[in-house]
Design a protein around this nucleic acid. Structure first.
Length: 679
DNA sequence: CTCCGCCCTG
DNA sequence: CAGGGCGGAG
């Protein structure tokens, strides 16, 4: 469909060698209602502009990233990470819908004027801003009559700097932890805290939550800044700090990140019959060159951009959080109790983490209330994933994206399993609340009190490790595995596993990746995967589907939707075949044997267009045989006049249903669905 | 009764 | 592609 994306250069010869390409993981999943057809070809997904972002102010990022941005005094070519600046036009040409640029132009730029001072002024402003915020926060906390955490790290914030920032970040959260529970009662906080008592306490809780959300915003802003420093090659090339980070990120100084990552990805992703990879490296070369050209840009300008982005991100987060809490707070308060208790496994040095999938119906010995989760589903859940997932993606530069894109790209860090209680279900909100806590600079593993010292852990104090834990738990429970081994491995990449390195990481990206690992909805990526699977199986059982969609939380609804998909696939398939069978009959063909479906036949083209639109998949020969047989069957039946029988197709269906073949294991790969979306 | 597949429709 | 209706199989 899009010529530049048809990586079909050498169709047959190297089909077994190719791996999937490792582009970034920004995709439009989460909305299975979206037509899958338009999803396929995302060349640079990280620049994808997501119009579905639920915030009215969500578009500064997209505006900046879209090439149409004309910010006063800011040259987008300088501001944008080089690859973005160079790729955007291309991207537009490829898949931007008309009007998108126009939309970007009309979008609000909330903070442009105030964010334009020069670097020195801006830094000062930033410091003052921080101080002011801190003062506000402290006054709030004191106003709540809550035991304030000894501000041991506060000095760090004053001085700024990487390490100090790291500690400084932590403070707000530590404070929060203390503030939340004592708010109810000193004794039995765990229980008291979560019990949604009188109206007043609810309102109070809401207030507190709001304050915490402000912290969240703050951290998000800083995260954004760090994120850009790390992933913007142009910037990194000009600041010592940035250079260091870049080296750490890419493994070696002066390395060529793009190629390295791509190579690693190729090694690790053995989706051999995908034929899209080699071009990736070549495709990247221009970016790097451009990067050198952009090196002339001013880091300070880039920081201005980051400020703007932070502002916007904060707005989005705030909006999402508010809207969610408005709806679910009363219930959530109650739910926190049980969840909280279940996580009471005080074990020093062990990081409890949670898995941030919304609404996981997992059979637990003592299932938590589902209503909370249910109440979190739907629009809110989508809004959340939209904010936390897409917004970061939309401006991720390719380099860092690659770093985190491929789960198995980075060596798995051994992570202890089984040290926490079963993870509960209401991860959506906790994800939301815990979001800022996983900021790479402020993880609680650095000099923070142990769980015991902090008192009862509260929902916010959950970390990523549980992801792996969860997977092991699920495994033992002979429940549909939500995580494939790939997932589990990849999850070791999450912040907790790398906490030791102390290096800021674009956690947003990981979060978004993690969010996708178990989905309760089928995504366009899944649809595409299902279509490709159709080449192997026309009549998959629900059991089979469950084994091949491991990243989906199966429910009746999901199962029937998948089955429905295949039913629709079959329908289309049979209609096409019948059409061509009749056509052959009209053309005077007599012998059914001569009817063969080859790769250049019209029928194949029609089918391929439907199931393999991007043509990035090598259709198995077996499918051609099946199609040929189907064609012959239809041909024979029609020629014999059987089509007068209302159920004349049934025998054919029966024949075809026996021709299913095994589906390659690669389809079980969790990243498969995501990868497909990119290709 | 549920599950599944087909058919028809939008 | 999804919904709804229908029928058959278990």
């Amino acid at each position: 469909m899009i010529p530049t994306l048809l990586w079909l250069s050498s169709p047959v010869s190297r089909e077994k060698e190719d791996t999937m390409d490792d582009r970034t993981a920004s995709e439009q999943d989460g909305n299975h209602a979206t037509s899958g057809h338009s999803q396929g070809l995302k060349k640079e997904p990280c620049f994808q502009r997501d119009s579905s972002l639920p915030s009215p102010s969500a578009s500064l990022i997209s505006q900046l990233l879209s090439h149409t941005v004309v910010s006063r005094g800011l040259d987008p070519h300088i501001l944008l990470p080089s690859s973005q600046a160079t790729d955007l036009p291309q991207d537009y040409g490829d898949d931007a819908s008309p009007g998108e640029g126009e939309q970007a132009l009309t979008l609000p730029r909330p903070c442009a004027p105030t964010l334009l001072p020069r670097a020195s002024d801006r830094d000062q402003l930033s410091n003052e801003h921080l101080r002011a915020k801190r003062a506000r926060v402290e006054s709030i906390i004191q106003g709540m009559n809550l035991p304030l955490n000894p501000p041991t790290c506060d000095t760090g914030r004053e001085t700024g700097g990487g390490h100090d920032m790291e500690r400084g970040r932590e403070t707000p959260w530590e404070n929060k932890r203390k503030t939340r529970m004592p708010q109810q009662q000193q004794s039995d906080e765990v229980i008291q805290w979560a019990v949604p008592g009188a109206c007043s306490s609810q309102t109070q809780g809401c207030q507190q939550l709001k304050e915490q959300l402000h912290f969240l915003e703050q951290q998000l802003r800083q995260l954004q800044e760090k994120f850009f420093q790390v992933c913007d090659p142009g910037d990194a090339a000009h600041t010592q700090e940035g250079t260091k980070k870049a080296h750490l990120l890419h493994g070696k100084p002066g390395g060529r990140p793009g190629k390295d990552s791509a190579a690693v990805a190729n090694d690790l992703l053995k989706m051999h019959f995908w034929r899209s990879v080699p071009e990736v490296a070549g495709h990247e070369a221009p970016e790097e060159e451009e990067s050198a050209g952009i090196a002339g840009g001013l880091p300070s300008e880039a920081r201005v951009l980051s400020e703007m982005l932070k502002h916007e991100l904060a707005g989005v987060t705030s909006w999402v959080v508010d809207s969610v809490l408005k709806t679910v707070w009363p219930k959530v308060a109650g739910h926190f109790l049980q969840w909280h208790c279940s996580l009471q496994v005080p074990r020093e040095g062990v990081r409890r983490e949670y898995f941030a999938s919304e609404k996981c119906r997992k059979p637990l010995p003592k299932p938590p209330p589902q209503d909370v989760l249910n109440s979190l589903g739907g629009p809110q859940a989508e809004a959340l994933s939209g904010a936390s997932e897409k917004s970061p993606d939309s401006h991720t530069c390719p380099v860092s994206s690659r770093e985190v894109r491929k789960p198995c790209q980075v060596p798995s860090i051994g992570y202890p399993l089984g040290m926490t209680a079963p993870v509960q279900d209401n991860q959506l909100l906790s994800q939301l609340l815990g979001y800022g806590q996983h900021s790479p600079w402020g993880s609680s593993s650095h000099g923070s009190p142990s769980a015991a010292e902090r008192g009862p852990p509260e929902p916010l104090n959950l970390h990523w490790g549980t992801i792996k834990l969860r997977s092991s738990v699920m495994r033992q429970q002979q429940y549909p595995l939500p995580l494939s081994p790939d997932n589990v491995e990849s999850l070791a990449l999450l912040p907790a596993a790398r906490a030791g390195c102390g290096e800021p990481q674009p956690d947003v990206r990981r979060l978004s990746l993690t969010l996708r690992y178990i989905q309760e909805a089928l995504t366009p990526g899944h649809l595409k995967k299902a279509k490709l699977m159709f080449f192997f199986t026309r009549y998959p059982s629900s059991t089979l589907l469950k084994t091949y969609f491991l990243d989906v939380q199966f429910s009746r609804c999901i199962t029937s939707q998948l089955i429905k998909w295949f039913s629709n696939f079959r329908e289309f398939y049979y209609i096409q075949v019948e059409k061509f069978a009749r056509q052959a009959l009209l053309e005077g063909i007599v012998d059914a044997k001569v009817l063969r479906v080859s790769r250049d036949s019209e029928l194949f083209r029609a089918l391929n267009m439907h199931y393999n639109k991007g043509n990035d998949f090598e259709v198995p020969a077996r499918f051609l045989e099946v199609a040929s047989l189907t064609l012959q069957e239809f041909f024979s039946a029609v020629r014999a006049g059987k089509d007068s029988d209302p159920s004349w197709k049934k025998p054919i269906y029966k024949i075809i249903s026996k021709l299913d073949s095994d589906i390659p294991e690669v389809f079980k790969s969790s990243g498969c669905s995501q990868e497909l979306l990119q290709s």
